[in-house]
Simulated assay, not measured.
Amino acid sequence: MEFPIDVALAEAVPRLPRGQGWWYEIKFDGHRTVLWRLAETVRLQSRSGRDVTRVWMDLAVAGMRLPPGTVLDGEAIIHDGGRISFSAAQSRAASSAARARALAARLPAHLAVWDILAHPVHGDVRGRPYLERRGLLLGLLADIGPPIQAVPATDDPEVAQTWYDTLAEQGVEGIVCKRAASPYRPGRIWQKVRHAETVDAEVVGYTGPAARPRALAVRLPDGRIGLSQALTAPLAVAVSAHIAACEPGRRARTHGEAYTTVGPGLVVEVLAGTTRHAVVTVTRMR
């Protein structure tokens, strides 16, 4: 297994699937993070494959307690004021290394782990069923403790529905649903039920300077290109890092608006209610 990997994703559905063979996990509101425990160090990967070790260094240090050869998939989350704060996670993800250290001292991160991709004894376990991987994960983390912990999971849909109905105020985003017999592979192999009505969109361009983009041109699920509203400062900083790593773009237009194209690999979450129109609202990087 080589760094980085293509991660498994979830497709949004309106309600929990029910029936034999379904398992349900709490979906925390943070930043997707794959932890690689290598022979002598730890590396952290974002959903898009970027190396994000420098901004989650507290998790990298904690990951040194894991045995070499471990690869975990989960969510980097931050608690603030008794609830999970996505804005705190977003601020950390968009920080410089020095600022990330300062933020970590005040609000340390946790890694909510939902899958194990490589095991120190069994090697690459992505082809094994979810339920078997879940058992390997729980066994591995039994003696590790915070800030690296397995997400709660159940095969009882009524328990999962209660989680969904009662935990939103604590920063829980929803529920992820997985088949007990399913292997781990790239693409939308899971289902998710979320409180926020959002969809994922691929970034194809930006307006404004590359060092501080003002808005994004995104390809919506139906194939249309939409131009976003103005980006928040943390989003602009995070997007600029992706732009800097791409080849220079060309000029293009959508609905009469000009933008500069950008290379593939960046996905953002946009409010679903705005996708019927040319202008969309970006809520976060994925």
Rank of each mutant, 00 (worst) to 15 (best):
V71Y: 01
G63S: 13
A102S: 14
A76H: 00
T70E: 07
A104I: 11
R99F: 04
I84E: 02
H79Q: 11
A97F: 05
L107M: 14
L66V: 04
E75H: 03
G63Q: 08
L103D: 02
G74N: 11
A89W: 04
S95C: 12
S87G: 07
A100F: 10
A98I: 15
L107Y: 04
P67N: 09
S85V: 02
L107W: 03
R99I: 09
M64Y: 03
P67D: 11
M64K: 11
A100D: 13
R65I: 12
Q90I: 01
L72Q: 06
M64A: 06
P68V: 12
P67I: 09
A97W: 03
S87D: 13
A109K: 02
L103G: 06
A98P: 00
G82P: 10
R65G: 10
I78L: 05
A105Q: 15
A109V: 03
L107Q: 10
S85A: 13
G69H: 03
S95W: 04
A100W: 05
L107R: 09
G69L: 06
G63R: 05
L107P: 06
T70W: 03
H79D: 08
A94C: 06
S91R: 13
G74D: 08
A105V: 05
A93K: 03
G82N: 07
P68K: 12
G69F: 05
